[in-house]
């Protein structure tokens, strides 16, 4: 308890205190402050987030590699962070007037990412996806994956209720009682899945862990360690990312963090995105 009071005092010393519409005061900080919390949560609506100050991260268009983001779209993301028992949780909240969670041709989906240097060092890697020999770790969340995790079935009818499909060969009668043969037949028409490139439903998590050493080098991380929940409301998205605390991160050893947002309505995917530069991440 004492600890938390101290945190609040410290925070207040450098914070800008704003009055929010709901009557609560919003404490903002110029860096991302990861607050030591009683517990960690996956839920964006958990009351525990009220204890954490907000960092308002301004987003700028990705303008380093083609295709570039030529027009600014999402202006900012409001970030909070908490820590507990080796886990760090980031809560990203941004305004979005349309929920894009149904993928299709010319229908990119809403998405967000949190990026951290793989190794804490004085010289941070290049903020846009790292650089050769200086890896960044990226936790990536996607709205259609969230819909899949929330229970949306995996099939064209889930996206287009009136779609009629004549026949999928792997649903043929002779395969009905042989699940293994049916699965093999299905994978024959889904080469990405057969290769283990799980880019769509059904999914266990709405998140993916990646590493990169520069633009165009994004690769799946050896293991998935990020979990969380993304929630949509009329005002936009709130997504909680929970992942291990960066190795060596402490009150005396800060690191950096960067954020990115993709807005489906504006056709954003891949390098067409709004992003931040590095922002200091402090353990509080």
């Amino acid at each position: 308890m004492k600890h938390q009071v101290l945190i609040k005092m410290l925070t207040a010393a450098i914070a800008l205190v704003l009055s929010a519409n709901c009557g609560h005061t919003v404490v903002t900080t110029p860096e991302v402050h990861a607050i030591a919390a009683d517990r960690i949560t996956l839920d964006p609506d958990d009351a525990i987030w009220e204890n954490a100050p907000t960092h308002i991260a301004k987003l700028i268009p990705q303008d380093l590699v083609e295709p570039r983001q030529m027009e600014p779209t999402t202006a900012e993301v409001r970030v909070k962070a908490i820590m507990k028992d080796g886990q760090i949780a980031f809560r990203m909240e941004w305004s979005d007037d349309s929920q894009n969670d149904a993928p299709g041709p010319r229908k990119p989906v809403d998405a967000a990412a949190v990026q951290l240097p793989a190794v804490i060092q004085a010289n941070a890697p290049a903020p846009q996806m790292g650089e050769q020999g200086m890896t960044v770790e990226i936790a990536y969340w996607r709205a259609d994956w969230q819909a899949s995790v929330n229970g949306r079935p995996d099939g064209i009818q889930a996206l287009h209720p009136n779609a009629s499909v004549d026949h999928h060969p792997y649903e043929a009668k002779p395969l009905e009682n042989n699940e293994e043969a049916r699965r093999r037949a299905e994978l024959r028409y889904a080469p990405a899945k057969a290769l283990g490139n799980v880019r769509s439903g059904p999914r266990e998590a709405a998140f993916e862990d990646l590493i990169a050493e520069g633009p165009g080098t994004l690769t799946p991380a050896p293991a998935r360690h990020t979990s969380g929940i993304g929630k949509w409301s009329d005002t936009g998205w709130v997504v909680v990312f929970v992942r291990p605390i960066p190795n060596g991160f402490s009150a005396t050893r800060p690191t950096q963090v960067a954020f990115a947002v993709w807005e489906g309505t504006h056709g954003e995917a891949g390098s067409r995105k709004m992003r931040t530069g590095w922002i200091n991440l402090l353990a509080k």
Binding site: P67, P105, R106, G155, L159, A190, A192, N197, R199, S200
Partner: peptide, 18 residues
Amino acid sequence: ECVRGCPYKKVFYNAMTG
């Protein structure tokens, strides 16, 4: 991006494999 780039529109996005 390939779907956008191919002038003959002979690359297709598969929403089920992503």
